[in-house]
Design a binder for these strands. Structure first.
Lengths: 177, 177
DNA sequence: ATTTTTGGTTGCGAAAAGCAACTTAATAGT
DNA sequence: ACTATTAAGTTGCTTTTCGCAACCAAAAAT
């Protein structure tokens, strides 16, 4: 299939998806987070085709999400480890795992538990919060053009908020009349 | 391409990705969160091919992430709105947008700002926390087999944690010797 | 009543994902 | 030291899905 790249789109989500939105990529990252380093282990744990795995790893390394570390200096064989940028993605992975636990598997069928190692307790549900720590629902979040907004984006946002908490844009053709 | 389905995999992340991991799907959800309801608006805002959009919407409705609402009772035309399950995904979308802002666009180029409507302040960075609110780094999170774990998963987890905070599994063939 | 818009569907070509066999370099065994 | 095995990919082929553009029917507007 001809697949569009979002690389030139002015949108953080599109940019992110351009790096990690492909089939398998997020599972590879989770696997790396679980401690997998070796090509064969990624392959056997995930059941991914080897050529696809090779391509994904290469892309993740190119995007500085994984780091390719020679297994011994000068060796052609290497291991793959998460970079800082990659480790920062684990938040997203965990949010998605928790969503799956809540809505698909059911919490009582969650295959893995994530615990706070200090207390042994389950970690909290990842959620959106205000700076002071208050959990925010969708209604509590406002959207505005950011510092890097272009006209297209600025056009879409007004102060008006719909009942789902999202932004309603001005219907210009009707306002002109 | 022949694409594997994760639907029968015993893994929340795979299950989640089976629903939302396809090309475009998360952008459609973001768009719905921004308030878009109509087919044509999804199409023109995202620039997605119409047949692909139709397929994605159908799949999202089948998975109860979007709801198809007839525009007037009995009409064949419909609008699409996020369900509760879909709205719960916005956390993931926001986490991913923030990651893109941090690592790809750069915070100063963020095209949209998300603010706490009560205060007008930027929302906090989505992060993993303990039940008592402490932010947790990767090292602070322990992984254990959950209530729905099967043998394959149980085999992979031990109490040993590597320096990246992830789990190291027992190397059984060496232990047997 | 006729035109325009909306919400799709159909058909085609291209590129990506799956499968399996092959290759080459590093390790292990004797 | 020599051979066997494993690890880490690569190559070639097939299948499936995505992107594009044209088409179609129902609803709305004029």
């Amino acid at each position: 299939m001809k697949r569009i790249s979002f690389a030139d789109t002015r949108c953080s989500l599109a940019q992110s998806l351009d790096m990690i939105g492909e089939w398998w990529t997020l599972l590879i990252i989770r696997e790396a987070y679980f401690g997998t380093r070796r090509f064969s282990d990624f392959q056997s744990h995930l059941g991914i085709a080897r050529n696809v795995l090779a391509e994904r790893l290469e892309r993740l390394v190119a995007n500085d999400i994984l780091q390719r570390v020679p297994v011994s200096p000068g060796s052609k064989r290497a291991h793959y480890r998460l970079t800082e940028k990659g480790r920062d993605l684990v938040t997203v992975v965990i949010a998605l795992v928790q969503w799956g636990d809540r809505w698909v598997m059911g919490p009582e069928n969650a295959p893995v538990r994530m615990v706070d190692r200090a207390t042994g307790e389950d970690i909290d549900t990842v959620q959106v919060r205000a700076k002071d720590g208050r959990p925010l629902g969708l209604h509590d979040i406002g959207l505005e053009p950011g510092p890097g907004a272009d006209d297209a984006i600025r056009d879409r946002f007004s102060e008006a908020i719909t009942d789902t908490g999202a932004v309603r844009w001005r219907i210009r053709r009707h306002m002109a009349a």
